[in-house]
Design a binder for these strands. Structure first.
Lengths: 124, 124
DNA sequence: CTTAAAAGTAGTAATCATTACTACTTTTTA
DNA sequence: TAAAAAGTAGTAATGATTACTACTTTTAAG
């Protein structure tokens, strides 16, 4: 039934080859090295499909752009409100309690979002 | 030095009086009951200021809009990918490990973002 | 094979949440 | 009490994302 296209593969590969959290536009720039005439719309459509199929994660930090993450293992995203950096942190879950000692990062707040299906939507 | 205005107070009150996670447009609609000619721009500006000062939280779930939360105590946000609902969950932190048993919510993925200042930006 | 339906794409136009801007009002402070 | 500072309403502009159209690639059936 199809979910193959060299564009989608290039997009997934691009995401898995980098360890930051690129936006759609950044993924587009990266993939253009391989497929020069790929369309930005194609990047958006395939990123959405990859999120939907669970192959990648979408990370929203509130900077107006959606970020994407090829690493699906559980980790925190430390977002600097000054420079906008998004830093991965594999802190033990215990430390989630008081949010201290995050490699020099000074935490102020945290927001956790769990994606899935609610009780009502589960029953169809 | 100012951070008073009846508009800002009305916006904060609106957020604290409701227990959902309204968007800027929804806050605007609510506050208009009290200040009918308030401007949408004023709502955006004050929401940003309230987030900056730490009085409210911004919650991004990846639906293209920013949501705001007057409840700053730690809790999970369960986001249904079907109906878009954002449900509060005060699950014990232990359960973060396997993300099961969230009141009938079927979890697929989770993303946690910690806001603050990174090591570099800390040193000015 | 080969051909028609299905799925995907490039490129462009449209949408819409958010931000910027301007003239005006309220608050502060000296 | 008057001038500077901060905030506001209303509108215009921005920019990330989505929709749309004509075209290409893939799939599947005879």
């Amino acid at each position: 039934m199809a979910n193959y296209s060299k564009q989608r593969e290039a997009i997934l590969t691009e995401l898995q080859n980098r360890c930051d959290h690129p936006t759609a536009a950044q993924v587009y720039e990266g993939v253009r090295q391989v497929i020069p005439n790929i369309s930005l719309g194609t990047v958006y459509r395939n990123l959405a499909a990859l999120v939907e199929s669970g192959e990648i994660l979408s990370v929203s930090v509130g900077d107006g752009k959606e970020h994407f993450d090829g690493d699906k293992s559980f980790h925190l995203h430390l977002h600097c409100k000054n420079c906008g950096a998004i830093i991965d942190s594999r802190v033990e879950r215990e430390k989630l309690k008081n949010l201290a000692d995050l490699d020099g990062f000074t935490p102020e707040n945290s927001v956790c979002v769990v994606y899935g299906l609610c009780k009502n939507c589960n029953k169809q």
